Simulated assay, not measured.
Amino acid sequence: MKMSSRKKDIIDTSIALFNQEGCLSTSTRHIADNMGISVGNLYYYFKNKEDILVQILQEYTHSLFESLHAFDFANNRQFLFKEFLLQIQILDAKYKFLHTEMHSIIVTFPQFKLSMRSIMNDEVNLMRKLIVHQIEHGYMVELEKNEIEHLIANARILKLSSAGYWNIIEDRPQVNSQMASLSLFYFLHPYLTQKAYDDESWHQLEANLLKEVADVKM
């Protein structure tokens, strides 16, 4: 079912305020006041702030899964990590607060945590599919099943921790997203084959990321 325009406005306003002011610091009244509507009107569409957060999480993961499914693994023999990292970079910039405040959010909102756990399983399955695809087509070194699982887990941990770290150092969401992507880029580097290194798109991605973060102090 298509989301109503008012419900979408509430989601978009919430994302903007959560990114600017912090999720835990933003109340439903703050969201309603920013939109020029009553809190009662907001509650017509969402039961509470946690309900809004769950909807935002679903929107984030829908965008991520949609981009991964678009790779068409069955018929695509290309090096896909560049496109994967670019999609992550775009989403991380839009939903900055999900990474900077993830720990606090899952501690404070139990239903969000349950939704996150369920979605993570689907995300891991898609990441596993991506890695197996890249191994089969010679872009990644051969890995045992348990090595793939640890690679996925460590990549997710790095993604969350690096996003939080760079948001402490810098107050520029787009740059922070690129720094987090660059961290993931170099983490994946040792797992790639010469065929991947020979792909010009990989070097172009590195050059673009380094250019965008040239003024960031490590």
Rank of each mutant, 00 (worst) to 15 (best):
F84G: 01
H137E: 07
I119W: 00
F46G: 04
P190S: 09
S27V: 04
S115T: 01
L17E: 00
A196F: 10
N34R: 08
E83R: 13
K113C: 07
L158H: 02
N146M: 11
N41P: 02
S27A: 08
K49H: 05
I105D: 01
V213R: 04
I119Y: 00
H30I: 08
N121Q: 09
L57M: 12
I10T: 03
A32H: 05
Q55Y: 09
E50R: 00
S104P: 02
W166L: 05
A93E: 12
S63E: 14
E50C: 00
C23G: 00
M35F: 08
E212D: 15
R77N: 13
K2D: 13
F71V: 05
I131A: 02
Q174A: 04
I88A: 10
F79P: 03
H69P: 01
M179E: 09
H62L: 14
E147A: 06
T193H: 00
L64C: 06
F187D: 02
V175I: 14
D9Q: 12
L17Y: 02
M179D: 10
T26L: 08
Y60M: 12
D12V: 05
Y60T: 08
H69V: 08
L143T: 01
Y60I: 04
S183P: 00
Q89C: 11
F81N: 04
A70Y: 09
I105K: 01
I157H: 04
L210P: 07
L86N: 06
L98Q: 07
H69G: 02
L57Y: 12
V39D: 13
N167W: 08
S161M: 15
A207G: 04
I131H: 03
I148P: 03
K47T: 13
V213F: 12
L126S: 06
I56F: 07
E149Y: 09
K129H: 09
L85G: 07
A153L: 14
T13M: 05
F18R: 00
F187C: 03
E144M: 06
G36A: 10
N19G: 00
H133A: 10
N208C: 05
D199N: 14
L86F: 09
F185K: 06
N125E: 15
K94L: 01
L205E: 01
V124I: 15
P173V: 03
T61S: 11
I56M: 07
E59L: 10
D33H: 08
R156Y: 07
D199V: 09
S5F: 14
L85Y: 12
W166R: 02
V213I: 15
M3W: 13
D9M: 04
F185R: 08
A196Q: 07
G36Q: 03
A32C: 04
E66W: 13
N146I: 12
D215S: 11
M116H: 03
F84V: 04
E83D: 13
E212A: 15
H99I: 04
K113N: 13
M116Y: 15
V39R: 12
